[in-house]
Amino acid sequence: MTTASLAAPRINPVRAIGRAALGAVREVGAVSLFAARGAAAAFSLPWFPNQLLRQLVAIGFFSLPVVGLTAVFTGAALALNIYTGGGRFNAEQVMPQIVALGITRELGPVLAALMLAGRVSAAIAAEIGAMRATEQIDAMRTLSTDPIRYLVAPRLLAAVMVLPLLTIVADTLGVAGGWLVAVRVLNFNPTTYIHNTATFLQAWDVGSGLVKAAVFGFIVALMGCYHGYNASGGARGVGRATTHAVVSAAVLIFAADYLLTSLFAHP
């Protein structure tokens, strides 16, 4: 064996960075094209109403328990934290307003979306990825049916429609969680708490959260569909697609959250 063959392979850092950058650009382009195809299919005929209905139930109805529980506990914990922190400068009494603002503008939509990223993105990626691995998507194309229209568009539409509704549930239960802690543990007056919350909250506090939720819904379904649709390599590939779907959905939700919050903020 020669010395040259024993030497470690030399890595050209410029080439490696260039390759990574090109790969990232390619991936962004592919996701964008996929999203455009999915959105175009969602807003043009033919539609598959049965598929849409099935997805509304799968994504929306079956996510209610996990979103609801998360919201209640988050609202309760938030109330305790704000009460404790607020006590440092005698601001305990504004706790109901801050809980309501935090839940409706930020935590309600973000937590509902993250729960959906874990539950729904993974399920979509696994289902569509398995269909890819077992040639069901090829079969669909040979049966004169566009898989983007049949599989992707209903999931995108359903998630965009359902996540704002789940966010309303999360907002309500989150505020209720805060109320429960305030009344039971911190001896707040129950009626005053609700009155303070209701008079403080503005429509846009809730509305901006619902707009965010619709965008997050699109991201959740898009990442599941994209990674599942492009899965390759059998069972291992499906597993990889599922992981990528959840991770990329979560990261994109946080990125979109910041962008939308910046857009909606009026400093």
């Binding site: 398995a130 269909m131 077992t134 040639e135 069901q136 090829d138 079969a139 669909m140 194309r141 040979t142 004169s144 049916t145 566009d146």
Partner: peptide
């Protein structure tokens, strides 16, 4: 493609039935 392949039928290796 869908229009042209309307008269085509395929039996896949693993049957590829929709679960």
């Amino acid at each position: 493609r869908r229009k042209l392949f309307a008269g085509v039928g395929v039996l896949f290796q693993g049957s590829a039935l929709f679960d």
